[in-house]
């Protein structure tokens, strides 16, 4: 699905990612954990194509293409989805209208016909149930005046409507109460399939109680310093991150 090799990224000459390598196969769910400021969101944004970052080395292959050469919209159309940590509000633009424009942009790029308003509405009604939102929600302006939980559920709604191959969930769990967390996790679980992959970025092990990750990675100082399975996440929850730091010091 995606293969990141020795990726180096800087912003204003400050190195943020320092040789990241990560390969995600179809169907897999990878969790990237780490403290604040270790480069987790940078990784998500660079994969989605945000411009302020500079790639200084390495490569990223996504579904057989050189991801780093693609525009953000081409990446989206090729099946890469980012659930934003802080989804931005677009006042005046109707949520449904926005979503329809997005779905049609993606369909168009696949050479499919645009979906008409009636079919779209019935499709969205089904998906709204999955994220437990009522229909009035899609007639509000995009993320404008949404609560934290509504924003995150809206991201998941967009994900299941756009049907991406790879979903990067950037702290989709943060700021959610337990009910919203369960809904978001359930939305992701329902969407999992052998040909869809996920990179879940999080601080906490909490959401992992509701999901079954295949791999867990720890990001520190812009590098993946440890990889493991669910057991690693549990260990982090118990002991924090400092023991890994100590381990690293021992190695070097």
């Amino acid at each position: 699905m995606i293969k990141i090799e020795n990726l180096n990224v800087s912003i204003e000459n400050k190195e943020i990612l320092n040789g990241i390598s990560l390969a995600v196969k179809p169907g897999e769910l990878h969790v990237v954990m780490g403290r604040n400021g270790t480069g987790k969101s940078t990784l998500a944004n660079i994969l989605a194509g945000k411009e302020k970052y500079k790639v200084t080395g390495g490569s990223v292959n996504f579904v057989g293409k050189n991801l780093l050469e693609m525009s953000p919209e081409d990446r989206a159309c090729a099946g890469l989805f980012l659930s934003f940590q802080y989804p931005v509000a677009i006042p005046g633009v109707n949520n449904m209208y926005f979503l329809k424009a997005a779905v049609n942009a993606v369909r168009k790029s696949r050479g499919e016909e645009e979906i008409d308003a009636v079919d779209f509405l019935s499709m969205i009604r089904e998906k709204l149930k999955i994220v437990a939102l009522d229909e009035s929600f899609i007639h509000r302006p995009v993320n404008d005046g949404f609560s934290g939980g509504e924003k995150k559920r809206n991201e998941i709604l967009q994900m299941i409507a756009l049907e991406p191959k790879l979903s990067i969930l950037d702290e989709t769990d943060s700021g959610l109460d337990i009910d919203a967390l369960k809904i978001v996790a359930q939305g992701v679980n329902d969407y999992r399939s052998p040909d869809r992959s996920f990179i879940l970025i999080t601080h906490y092990q909490r959401i992992l109680n509701y999901m079954q990750p295949d791999f867990v990675h720890v990001l520190m100082n812009g590098r993946i310093v440890k990889s493991g399975t669910m057991e690693l996440a549990k260990e982090l929850e118990e002991k924090g991150y400092s023991w890994i730091e100590e381990e690293m010091v021992e190695i070097t």
């Binding site: 989605a48 194509g49 945000k50 411009e51 525009s71 953000p72 919209e73 990446r75 989206a76 159309c77 989805f81 980012l82 934003f84 989804p87 931005v88 677009i90 926005f98 424009a101 997005a102 942009a105 993606v106 790029s109 967009q158 756009l162």
Partner: peptide, 9 residues
């Protein structure tokens, strides 16, 4: 960027 990420030019 938000729009771009959803496939909208």
């Amino acid at each position: 960027f938000y729009c771009n990420q959803r496939g909208i030019s």
